[in-house]
């Protein structure tokens, strides 16, 4: 015991995170991209839907797009919508999915069986189809409708993963010990089970965010955006893809932004997952 008494006390999770290169790098880049999305519109040389010249011209840094709008300005305006919708949708999907998965795993028995079979039915639909079914019924969907739809389409996939992770934890003795003490079921889930799932769940969240951006972009392509005229990284790729050979920047610029953002968020999630895993063993 003397040896441990001399050892320095545990640094907090935040302190440890700040020492991890992977996390720090991902975190910094994520912040930069978010800052760009928020503040860049203030400095954009042209307005969001302002025409700057002929289509696919070389004017400005990145040239113009299919209707002659300045690509740089569109890029600067187009971050907010995509990021906000996909981050919110991911959060919603994660919360719903974790809830379903953990309750099913912890409840066990017929509850688990019924919940997971219903979940399987939802899983059978391609992710984008669920959203399309509702969106075709609405003429001009509000942004929150898209958030809810994408979030809901993530939920069954997240539920599968979190149920798998939770199954390995609910059978451990410390959960049984909490049961034996007569802890409330909700507290067992929140205080005993969830904290031990952080690692895999963060990795899943990173992956889901990438998917969200993809789905938002795809919906935009199909004409289901909150505002069809507004700039949006996802939509930009689809609008300009025909001119890829003549004006590659109109597509490449938003692609690069999305790539940088997803890589950064995934690095961040990965770093956190590694950190939270290290304490175990």
């Amino acid at each position: 015991m003397s040896t441990t008494a001399n050892a320095p006390s545990t640094p907090s999770f935040g302190e440890r995170a700040m020492k991890q290169k992977r996390f720090v790098f991902g975190f910094t880049v994520t912040l930069l991209v978010i800052a760009f999305a928020i503040f860049a519109p203030l400095f954009a040389p042209y307005g969001e839907e302002q025409t700057a010249g002929p289509p696919y011209a070389k004017n400005g840094l990145f040239g113009t797009d299919y209707v002659g709008q300045d690509v740089l300005s569109r890029l600067m305006h187009g971050g907010q919508g995509v990021l906000l919708i996909s981050v919110l949708a991911t959060l919603l999907g994660m919360v719903l999915g974790i809830l379903i998965g953990v309750v099913a795993a912890y409840g066990g028995g017929w509850l688990d069986e019924v919940m997971m079979r219903l979940n399987d039915v939802l899983l059978a639909f391609p992710q984008i189809l669920l959203a399309l079914v509702v969106l075709t019924a609405l003429s001009n969907p509000a942004a929150w409708v898209i958030v809810v739809l994408i979030g809901a389409s993530h939920a069954p996939r997240v539920a599968r993963v979190s149920r798998g992770v939770a199954l390995g934890i609910v059978s451990r003795d410390f959960v049984v010990a909490a049961e034996a003490l007569g802890e409330k079921r909700s507290r067992v889930i929140v205080a005993e089970v969830l904290p031990n799932m952080i690692g895999p769940l963060l990795a899943e969240a990173g992956l889901r965010l990438t998917y969200s951006i993809g789905v938002v972009a795809a919906l935009g392509f199909l004409g289901f955006a909150a505002d069809p005229g507004a700039a949006n990284w996802g939509q930009m790729m689809n609008e300009n893809r025909l001119g890829l050979a003549t004006q590659p920047w109109a597509v490449l610029a938003p692609v690069l932004m999305i790539a940088i953002f997803t890589i950064a968020t995934n690095l961040m999630a990965d770093g956190l997952a590694q950190l939270s895993q290290r304490g175990d063993s």
Binding site: R172, D173, F174, V176, A177, A191, E192, P195, N196, G279
Partner: peptide, 15 residues
């Protein structure tokens, strides 16, 4: 009160 066989499983590693 019940005490478990394996102390590696019976304490929540997060707490």
């Amino acid at each position: 009160q019940y005490i478990f066989q394996n102390p590696y499983l019976s304490l929540n590693p997060r707490l």
